[in-house]
Design a protein around this nucleic acid. Structure first.
Lengths: 333, 333
DNA sequence: TCAAAAGTGTTATCCTTACACCCATGT
DNA sequence: ACATGGGTGTAAGGATAACACTTTTGA
């Protein structure tokens, strides 16, 4: 294949992985500093004074890897030394900015985003740094009550953007969209809408990425503090997609156990779910549903490292996968 | 970009669309006969005496189309003359057979699958033919009771395959998988598992595509009738993905209305949902849920073409999109 | 003794499901 | 009259959410 002429309209394919883990009840994402990214990815960046981060990136080489999933596991291992226990395709991103990269002389245009899960053990992530995903998405953490940031900064800015829309239907729709995305008017905050919120913020021009991509803003940029830490290219969008997917999936598939140690207490399990979903759960009902749902079994051992009464240790009951149509942590918030 | 050297490991990107519509309460998919597919797609086919069909295919050209979705709408219009009302990315397929195509001298390796919905109006689909999707997936139609085919043909063949697995855990797992996928042991048939069923059938080597790809079968191929009409490459897998997605989505997003005419009776709406989901719904509860859910409003007109008492005509109430977190036809089977 | 976390029991409420039944039209 | 589909009422059962309370440890 090498050395052949590229056909007109041909594009290249890259792989990006959002690798998620848990550490001290915080959801972590593996990032690589920009300097370690080669070619295209760095060249697109606008000059900036602070460090920017991106997701691990690899090429899909169909000769070397039989499937794309194997390709993902391969480049993740090569670049970070990590063995991920769960891999799932998220979405293929081909818009905005990427075509510009192609014109700049690089062929890589579409990027297939993957979600990967791994346990935080002693395996070192050489060539990468774990970062709390709420640093990029501070408005997604509702574990300490309704987000202050949404009320005091985000909604006012978005309303300003909505006011700038054409009066009438467009404006009404913009207002409704703000309400639905951020649960303003009694509709309640839906923790799964991470991507919708990101896209609204981007379209409204209130994110760094929007400025970088040359979008018009509803206000003077330098007046205002940043909303969350930005990432290169559309990587923050990929992380938003990963968050939406895992927050939804946790409810009907037992993916949370790919982030847990072999044995754990029910509180640890609850806090892990809370870290991912960004909201607090009702303790008693959580325990009841998890136990009665047959998701876990007691190992017979106890943990006395709890700070209170010793807790029973549990492990995941793999058999549920064979028994139930849906098996997840089906707990409302 | 044209004329540049291809880098080592570079791959090409194609777009495939599963275009869905409804005609006489049958779910239809737009197919193109193999002869109208150029180059690679036809070259992979093994010789066969009967006609094979594929999905419409296009290249993604980032210079011409700002986003991939626009690219999909564009090539669908060019090739078929259809304007689709809804487009959604399904999955990016990069495995099995596609790498072989690359070695055969063609660059196209990954294919981004899209689901598109359109109303069946008088717009002609030049260069394509509508085919009932149950011709490719006869076991997915449960509208006339539990599928005969599953009981009499599929499960026995799959059991034969399972018997050929290594005795012990692998065999037990194979049996469990058959039960879950096809709802054998009391677990009930889950109409959303279209893709799981397809993949099980493929892995077990009982589909034409498996034979074509050179997989070992659990029996002599030519003894047995085919299971559904095959398609080229992995297009039947793409259709399975589309069916899974739309069957799931219909329950929490009002996508069914992209397949309905402007106004319709509640029975027409119910029959449309039944066509997609492949199963019958409870009439009274369907009506109640749809009406009380605010999904539709009466237009004030009546239809007397019903064969019985004239029915009220309804239309979709677009405002639900702004009001509710989930708005779909949430009806159990 | 108190703080912290582990556990158990109970009740009100809503949603789903199922069944029973009446209404209006064409043939 | 009756077949066909339209349309309404209601009750049983299960899942969910909320509250109150007891138990066991370490400091």
């Amino acid at each position: 294949m090498a050395g052949k002429k590229t056909e007109k309209g041909a594009v290249g394919v890259g792989l990006n992985a959002a690798i998620v883990s848990l550490e001290d009840n915080q959801p972590m994402i593996l990032t690589v500093p920009v300097s370690s990214l080669s070619g295209i990815q760095a060249s697109i960046l606008h000059p900036t004074t602070e460090a920017l981060y991106g997701l691990p990136f690899g090429r899909f080489d169909p000769v070397q890897h039989r499937t794309m999933e194997i390709g993902v596991r391969g480049f993740v291992r090569e670049q970070t030394g990590l063995d991920v226990s769960y891999v799932e395709q998220l979405y293929t991103f081909g818009d905005r900015g990427r075509a510009a990269a192609a014109e700049a002389g690089e062929m890589h245009v579409v990027s297939i985003g993957y979600l990967a899960l791994t346990r935080m053990t002693d395996q070192h992530s050489m060539g990468g740094a774990w970062r709390n995903w709420y640093r990029a998405f501070p408005w997604e953490d509702w574990r300490h009550g309704p987000s202050e940031l949404i009320e005091s900064v985000i909604v006012p800015r978005l309303r300003r953007w909505a006011d700038g829309q054409e009066a009438g239907l467009a404006q009404r729709r913009a207002y409704d969209r703000i309400d639905i995305c951020f649960g303003v008017g009694g509709s309640g905050f839906d923790e799964e809408k991470v991507l919708d919120r990101y896209e609204l913020l981007y379209e409204a021009g209130v994110l760094y990425e929007a400025k970088r991509d040359g979008r018009k803003a509803a206000f003077l940029w330098d007046e205002l503090p940043r909303l969350g830490e930005p990432m290169i290219l559309d990587h923050r969008r990929i992380v938003a997609t990963a968050m939406s997917r895992i927050r939804a999936k946790i409810k009907y598939r037992p993916v949370i156990f790919d982030l847990m140690p072999q044995s754990f207490t029910l509180l640890q399990l609850q806090q892990s779910v809370e870290a991912i979903s960004g909201s607090l759960l009702h303790k008693q009902n959580f325990r009841r549903l998890v136990e009665s749902g047959g998701l876990v079994v007691a190992t017979g051992e106890m943990s006395s490292q709890t700070g209170g009464r010793p807790a029973k240790l549990y492990r995941f009951r793999k058999e549920v996968l064979l028994e139930r149509r849906t098996a997840g942590v089906r707990v409302r918030i």
